[in-house]
Computed example of a mutant assay.
Amino acid sequence: MTERLDVLVFYSPVESTEDVLAAVFAAGAGAIGSYTECAWFVEGTGQFRPGLGANPAIGTVGERERLPEHRVEVTIPRSSRRAVLAALLSAHPYEEPAFHVIETAAPDPD
């Protein structure tokens, strides 16, 4: 049986997306069959307000910030989840990057 693939979704400043993708690809994300470095992303506007105690890479504590970001989706083998998330957190410029992992259902439950 082929290992189950889940989906990692994260948000990245547009200028950082290539570097973050390179890190998660190197950790095992983005492979589907004979294809590697597979990703889907779209540009939108991210918003956040750094609170007291934050050390923002972009923006100023107490002030709302809006900037162009990519929403990125890549597949991850379940066995690589820990390594891929470590790579994401290491490569991402934000102090607290937003991300989530979606566990996929078996294509054929039988």
Results as ranks from 00 to 15, higher is better:
29 A>V: 09
23 A>Q: 07
102 I>Q: 09
33 G>T: 01
44 G>Q: 10
14 V>H: 07
20 V>Q: 03
51 G>M: 13
7 V>K: 13
98 A>Q: 15
97 P>T: 07
104 T>W: 01
53 G>C: 03
6 D>R: 00
34 S>N: 13
14 V>R: 12
91 A>R: 05
6 D>E: 03
109 P>Y: 10
15 E>Q: 13
98 A>I: 13
103 E>N: 03
64 R>M: 15
46 G>C: 12
107 P>W: 04
61 V>D: 11
101 V>F: 04
98 A>R: 15
48 F>G: 08
83 A>K: 13
58 I>W: 05
31 A>V: 01
106 A>I: 06
62 G>W: 06
32 I>T: 05
65 E>P: 10
42 V>M: 11
33 G>I: 00
47 Q>S: 07
50 P>M: 12
56 P>G: 05
42 V>E: 11
105 A>D: 04
26 A>L: 04
22 A>V: 00
14 V>Y: 07
32 I>F: 02
87 A>T: 10
10 F>E: 06
19 D>G: 05
74 V>P: 01
33 G>F: 01
78 R>V: 00
97 P>M: 05
38 C>F: 00
6 D>P: 02
17 T>W: 01
65 E>C: 13
60 T>C: 06
1 M>Y: 06
44 G>A: 11
6 D>K: 01
8 L>N: 07
109 P>Q: 11
4 R>C: 05
50 P>G: 09
16 S>Q: 07
91 A>F: 03
1 M>L: 09
55 N>Y: 04
97 P>A: 04
69 E>W: 03
21 L>S: 09
81 R>C: 00
30 G>A: 10
7 V>D: 09
86 A>R: 15
63 E>N: 14
27 A>I: 06
53 G>A: 02
4 R>A: 10
20 V>S: 03
10 F>A: 05
69 E>A: 07
99 F>E: 05
54 A>N: 15
10 F>W: 05
10 F>I: 01
56 P>W: 07
42 V>F: 11
37 E>Y: 02
2 T>K: 03
19 D>L: 04
57 A>C: 12
104 T>P: 02
12 S>L: 06
64 R>C: 11
31 A>I: 00
60 T>F: 10
41 F>K: 14
84 V>R: 01
16 S>C: 11
5 L>M: 00
109 P>S: 11
92 H>I: 09
47 Q>C: 01
110 D>Q: 15
75 T>Q: 00
27 A>Y: 04
33 G>A: 02
54 A>V: 13
33 G>L: 01
35 Y>Q: 15
74 V>A: 01
87 A>D: 09
79 S>N: 03
4 R>Y: 02
13 P>E: 00
25 F>E: 09
30 G>E: 06
35 Y>S: 13
50 P>Y: 10
3 E>C: 03
71 R>V: 10
31 A>C: 10
66 R>C: 10
100 H>M: 10
